[in-house]
């Protein structure tokens, strides 16, 4: 498969990559710019980072974001993993129906998900009289809703890859059904569960649209706070925040990739032995 790529395709790739990264690079550079208006470079400073870390609004929103992301991802992982186990044993027809249902939150536009959940919460409060105010709880419920499918679609393939007799083998060797589950099935689908959980966390951290409709005025998440700041237009602190997020993500990706590469290499070495 390996081929020399032509100069033309190299240039093309470089241009697209430049398009994708230029705005981010500009933000990073401007986050160290003294000048408050964005266009001109007037000198290096860490001021915006300092201001960011003393911004109560942003810090509070950060805490909320972490709470919502973790609680909703854990819940989605539990519900989604159980669901995948159930779906795996369903017959073909039922499987197909449930998969269709699971596609809905992924395929439908976020704004539809957002307003429909908002309608639900409003309906429950006004028509059913349940005192469910828009806030952290409704945020968490909404995030669980859009996170579950990611867990299911990460766990299901692992179940499919599993030897269909592995569970039987565990029973055969003396495990009761519970032992068979946590000694054999769980370790095998764990990579899928972890991937699903991480995906849920990232989607939850990043979600703006659905949170926008379901958060209510009191509980802000980071993306909501960013939106509020951006509307006021003057916010070099946002450049600093963007830079931090970008660097954190970059480091996380590098670490996870390096470790998986090392694991791969170790595996290959073992085979050679």
């Amino acid at each position: 498969m390996k081929r020399k790529s032509s100069a033309l395709s190299r240039i093309y790739t470089a241009v697209i990559m430049a398009f994708l990264y230029m705005p981010i690079l500009v933000l990073i550079v401007l986050s160290f710019n003294q000048n408050k208006s964005r266009g001109a470079w007037t000198g290096f400073t860490f001021d915006w980072y300092r201001k960011l870390f003393t911004n109560r609004l942003i810090l509070g929103a950060f805490v909320n974001t972490m709470i919502v992301a973790l609680v909703s991802s854990v819940a989605a992982t539990l519900i989604g993993t159980a669901a995948a186990l159930g779906i795996h044993t369903m017959n073909k027809w039922m499987k197909k129906a449930v998969r269709m249902l699971t596609y809905i939150p992924i395929m439908s536009p976020e704004i539809i998900m957002g307003v429909s959940l908002m309608l639900l919460f409003v309906f429950v409060r006004t028509e059913l009289g349940v005192p469910l105010e828009l806030g952290l709880l409704t945020l968490i419920l909404s995030h669980i809703t859009f996170n579950i499918p990611y867990v299911i679609f990460n766990v299901l393939p692992k179940l499919r890859q599993m030897d269909s007799y592995a569970y039987d083998a565990a029973l055969d060797l003396g495990c009761n059904p519970w032992q068979a589950f946590y000694k054999v099935i769980l370790p095998e689908i764990m990579p899928g569960i972890t991937a699903g959980f991480l995906m849920a966390v990232t989607y939850s951290l990043d979600d703006f649209v659905i949170s926008y409709f379901t958060a209510g005025p009191t509980s802000q998440t980071l993306p909501l706070a960013i939106w509020g700041q951006l509307r006021r237009r003057v916010s070099p602190e946002m450049n600093a925040l963007s830079t931090i997020i970008f660097v954190v993500v970059l480091v996380l990706l590098l670490v996870s990739n390096l470790s998986s590469m090392r694991r791969e290499r170790r595996g290959r070495k073992a085979v050679r032995l």
Partner: peptide, 25 residues
């Protein structure tokens, strides 16, 4: 290609505001 997607959607769009503004880059 995926790396920029990991940055907040809002901030990526905000970056273009910075670039495209009348007094922008």
């Amino acid at each position: 290609i995926m790396l920029p997607m990991w940055m907040s959607f809002l901030l990526r769009t905000f970056a273009w505001m910075t670039l495209l503004e009348k007094t922008g880059v």
